[in-house]
Amino acid sequence: MKNFSARDAKNQFGLLIDTARVDPVVIEKHGRPVVVVCSVEEFDRLRRIASKHSDPTKKGSE
């Protein structure tokens, strides 16, 4: 996972998007991680997993 400072994320937004499409990117502010940017596909995958864990009636695995 790659890290960007908040300043670099702002100044290199296109690169941030391209990078996050391949692998999630941690955005740091004052040296501390504050958010993660990921692709829509990765976000959807994580939501499906979370949904299965929160609803015991759903079965199956990723």
Rank of each mutant, 00 (worst) to 15 (best):
M1W: 04
K2L: 09
N3Q: 11
N3W: 03
F4G: 00
A6M: 11
R7Y: 11
R7K: 14
D8F: 03
A9N: 03
A9D: 03
A9V: 04
K10A: 11
K10H: 12
K10T: 04
N11Q: 15
F13M: 08
G14D: 08
G14N: 12
G14L: 09
L15C: 04
I17F: 07
I17L: 13
D18F: 05
D18G: 05
A20E: 02
R21P: 00
V22E: 15
P24N: 08
V25E: 02
V25M: 06
V25P: 01
V26H: 03
E28G: 00
E28Q: 12
E28T: 08
E28K: 13
H30E: 14
H30M: 08
G31Q: 03
G31F: 02
G31W: 00
R32F: 09
R32T: 04
R32K: 14
P33Q: 11
P33S: 14
P33Y: 13
V34E: 15
V35F: 10
V36H: 03
V36R: 10
C38R: 10
C38Q: 13
V40E: 11
V40Q: 06
V40C: 03
E41S: 10
E41D: 14
E41Y: 06
E41P: 01
E42S: 05
E42F: 02
E42W: 01
F43T: 00
F43L: 13
D44W: 10
R45T: 14
L46V: 07
R47M: 14
R47N: 10
R47C: 12
R48W: 05
R48G: 06
I49A: 13
A50V: 03
A50L: 12
S51Q: 11
K52P: 00
K52C: 06
H53Y: 09
D55E: 10
T57V: 13
T57Q: 09
K58D: 07
K58N: 05
K58Y: 06
K58F: 10
K58I: 15
K59D: 08
K59Q: 13
K59I: 15
G60M: 04
G60H: 05
S61I: 12
S61H: 07
S61V: 13
E62G: 11
E62F: 12
E62Y: 09
